[in-house]
Amino acid sequence: MKIAITSQGETLAAQAEERFGRCRWILIIDTETGNLVARDNEIQRDAVQGAGIQTAEKILREEVDCVVTGHCGPKAFRVLQAAGIKIYLGAEGTGEKVLKDFQEGKLKLAETSDVEGHWV
């Protein structure tokens, strides 16, 4: 299974980013092989609008099964949901901890977005 974790850094040692759209990095992890690819998302930090939409679109290209992040707004949620990607919310701590929490089923599968856009 391939999952995407929003992160503040390029590795799993870095803190996960709780904001979805304006996360600095997206870590793509293959849970079977343990392979990790970090995708730079710097450009969306300065997006005037629609950062969540574009971050979600970037994730669609990676063909992941799920996204793990802190919070997710309605537009990004719509993009991910339309592509059939599962969204897990409540990520906290380092990427390693978040990955472990996810694998142990501690994170919540989101049925709707949990915040409004521009919530921070």
Partner: peptide, 22 residues
């Protein structure tokens, strides 16, 4: 989607969405 400076479109492998409010 790549053209839109206002991020009003999102295109996946089999999905394309318009966010008309943007």
């Amino acid at each position: 989607s790549r053209f839109c400076r206002f991020n009003a479109l999102a295109v996946g492998k089999k999905t394309a969405l318009v966010f008309k409010e943007l």
